[in-house]
Amino acid sequence: MIEIQVPTGIDGFMEDKEVAKNLRRVQIIPALEQGEVVVLDFSGIKYVTQSFAHALIYEALKRYPDDALDRLEFRNCSQPVKSIIELVVDYSFDGFGSEAVTTA
């Protein structure tokens, strides 16, 4: 298992895609290639942008669709961070739909 502390950005707001790309290329994908479990620790982060989360995990989900979610663990996520990660997981596997939805 390898643990990666995601940098906290500006006051807990993380948006720098270059950081995400670097983590993906240098740590996440190589670790998954070797069969490791990867723990992404979001402590200290309140918000990430969808673009940041996409750059961080999308490739891993597409490359290992069968077991990426078993081997990726998201630790210490705030509710907004959880929502963004769930969104990226949703469209990575299922794509975007096209009809409007109304939620209460």
């Binding site: 990726l72 769930e86 969104l87 949703d90 469209y91 299922d94």
Partner: peptide, 23 residues
């Protein structure tokens, strides 16, 4: 934070799989 969650819920989905991230 609620806004972010709200927007996610508003995005329509194709047939949804049951795969969920592990928090």
């Amino acid at each position: 934070g609620e806004y972010v969650t709200w927007i996610r819920k508003q995005i329509p989905k194709q047939d949804r799989t049951s795969r969920r991230p592990r928090f």
